[in-house]
Amino acid sequence: MSTAAVQQGTKWWSGGKSPFNASYGKVMMWYFLMSDAFTFGAFLISYGTIRFSQNHWVDPNHVFNSFPFAGHANLPLAFVSLMTFILIASSVTMVLAVHEGHKMNKAGVEKYMLWTILGGICFLGCQAWEWTHLLTGQHEVLVNGQLEYWNTTVAHNPFGPEVMFNGKEVATPGPIAFGSYFFEITGFHGFHVFSGIIINIVMFIKTKMNHFGQRGHYEMIEKAGLYWHFVDLVWVFVFLCFYLI
């Protein structure tokens, strides 16, 4: 039987088969991701709402302008671009793993799963560096008429509007919500990356033990891939909301 013929005459909703031509596991994964999209959506929309309610917001180019081993060079957006590329690249290797799975090529799946896991770990490492940098980096800030040195935490940040003090421009305390939301949302995303890595490691081990080869299909890799791409997708929006606008 040719697949095209089935495709045209199929009554998708008549029962006895999936209306999506997908196994229940894949359908479940899709709807789980929908649900998770609403979790992240709620976070990002809350962030937007609070941001809309403030007169002043932090300029991301001032906050995220450093790069590991680059000292105090002013490199806005450079590091986060690196993180974005790492995640996109690990997404590509994930698709390639799924692709190898379709071809039932066990060695290929293993290779690309390893690359994906590596990409995920690199991303988490970058995030750890960025968090450390924000939490330890001291910035001059004018508090109650006195100059102090503040780091960026969930409870305060030194990136408020600048005022003239003793003949030079000094920042005042910025909106608290900036740090709160930044750490909360990137933390929640990082948690997703972390769980994605765990899932991918499990999938790698299962591939290694040839579970999927015996089963006759690599659908589990596909489902893990969906999750991994979703994490990438969320990052695209986090990147937009926190770094670009």
């Binding site: 089935v6 199929t10 999936s18 997908a22 039932m104 006759g216």
Partner: peptide, 15 residues
Amino acid sequence: SASISSPEITFHPEH
């Protein structure tokens, strides 16, 4: 070469 992974699937999608 991949077999149908579940009875709910009508045809195997082309990859």
